[in-house]
Amino acid sequence: MSMNNSEWKPKIVAFCCNWCSYAGADLAGSSRLAYPADVKIIRVPCSCRVNPMFILRAFQKGADGVILCGCHPGDCHYSTGNYYARRRMTTLFSMLDFLGVEKNRTHVEWVSAAEGVKFSATMNKFIEQVRELGPNVRLEDIRCKQN
């Protein structure tokens, strides 16, 4: 079997909260559920630990898509963290859309520790969306003059 290594693969950064989504990813792994290796998981103590600048930084460092996973609203280990994260991400994503950055490059999904299937399905779906968009160039180019 030959493999084509020259094919472009999207780089995905997934911020996963320690208590739900990271455990969900673990369950997906131990249940042998497949999701592409292009997803790089960054474990955070809570979804609200994700400063909006982390998302921008991930894009600047070459990510093509960024996904944030946390506990379902109401289930946060710290009671209310994900509610704050929800407001922040809603406004940040809306701003990125306003600047003309493709809105399918960002996503928030609530994944509990028992939802290994959901984790794998979410990642597969998200990576497909980003693959369709191609490499992320707009955020890099936004301050460059057009020829």
Partner: peptide
């Protein structure tokens, strides 16, 4: 301030899409 506050039935970030 709205970004240091929340309600339990806020819109989901998917509203942007």
């Amino acid at each position: 301030a709205p970004l240091t506050n929340f309600t339990t039935d806020d819109v989901e970030p998917s509203i942007v899409k």
